[in-house]
């Protein structure tokens, strides 16, 4: 019994390490690769190296590396929370895990209906990935969500899902849905169809990115202000960052914590609404029944 307890603890520690180490590795990579500079500057994702491919070079950037790191971290977090599950919850972590699963299931049920109940792992994963990616900026890392490419990838995935569910009632039905309500509105319908993933990607990216830009601008303005006021002091005191202590943290609470979590929630919410809006189970059942009838009729005709 004691032996078992021991190995349980060791596994626990390993899982915790697996959760923390990727983020620490991200910080180490950032420290090693960022060139030294004295000013505060706005930069995009740094390019680590390029893979030579026939059509176009594949760039491995900071945002890709960071999003993989955060994925590993979330994976180990889930493994840690579900380690040692019992039929009756005893540990705090099992209660937390159950609470998360319950809330996600509830959210999906409420917004998508019971037909899409199987979507809750996908929505949960999207929420966690988006929220933790944005929260990475609290560690001083480059948040992957402030790179358009990452968010556009997610939006593209959502767009494929939407199209799949629209085509489920037959490709003809899908094409016909563009001519509704009036046929001359077709170009507008096509544009609005394409605008869905673009606006989703821009919304998420723009919010996180604008937060980063505004915080950087405010931080550099505060730096200038403290330099201006303390210029007359002798020696190193003149460079004392008076206004940079604490004040940027107030902005960070809004831009990093609140806005990051809110954007994750909104992205997941829009995903749910778009997917469930693109498909109605009643219509699908009618389509299936019609198809079945034609098949039996054809067989009867033979």
């Amino acid at each position: 019994m004691k032996e078992k307890n021991h190995s349980f603890k060791i596994k626990d520690i390993l899982l915790l390490l697996g959760m923390i180490l990727p983020l620490a590795a991200g910080i180490v990579i950032k420290v090693l690769t960022t060139p030294a500079s004295d000013g505060i500057e706005i930069t995009g994702a740094r390019i680590f190296f390029r893979l030579k491919l026939p059509v176009q070079d594949l760039l491995i950037t900071e945002s890709q590396v960071n999003s993989w790191l955060v994925m590993i971290s979330i994976l180990f977090l889930c493994l840690f929370l579900t380690h040692g599950l019992k039929e009756k919850a005893e540990k705090k972590r099992q209660l937390i895990a159950e609470w998360i699963v319950e809330k996600t299931d509830d959210l999906v049920q409420k917004n998508m209906g019971s037909y899409f109940a199987g979507f809750s792992p996908f929505i949960g994963a999207m929420l966690a990935l988006s929220a933790f990616s944005s929260l990475q900026s609290l560690l001083g890392l480059f948040p992957p969500t402030s790179d358009l490419n990452i968010v556009a990838g997610w939006a593209l995935l959502v767009f494929l899902l939407i199209s799949y569910y629209k085509m489920k009632c037959g490709p003809l039905h899908y094409l016909k849905s563009f001519t509704e309500p009036v046929s001359f509105l077709t170009p507008l319908n096509v544009i609005s169809e394409i605008a869905t993933p673009i606006s989703m990607a821009f919304r998420h990216y723009g919010n996180v990115m604008s937060g980063a830009v505004v915080s950087t601008l405010v931080a550099s303005a505060l730096q200038g202000l403290s330099l201006l006021l303390l210029r007359w002091l002798p020696g190193a005191l003149a460079k004392f960052p008076l206004f940079q202590i604490g004040l940027p943290a107030v902005l960070s609470i809004y831009f990093d914590l609140f806005s990051g979590c809110l954007q994750a929630f909104i992205f997941a919410m829009l995903t749910m609404l778009y997917i469930s809006g693109s498909f109605s189970p009643d219509e699908y059942n009618a389509y299936k029944a019609r198809k079945k009838r034609t098949v039996t009729q054809a067989k009867g005709g033979c």
């Binding site: 606006s199 821009f202 919304r203 990216y205 723009g206 919010n207 990115m209 604008s210 809110l262 954007q263 929630f265 909104i266 919410m269 829009l270």
Partner: peptide, 16 residues
């Protein structure tokens, strides 16, 4: 909050 996020889209286009 949902409505605000959607209303914000035009502003974000300008930002981009």
């Amino acid at each position: 909050l949902m409505g605000c996020a959607i209303a914000e889209t035009t502003g974000l286009y300008a930002l981009v």
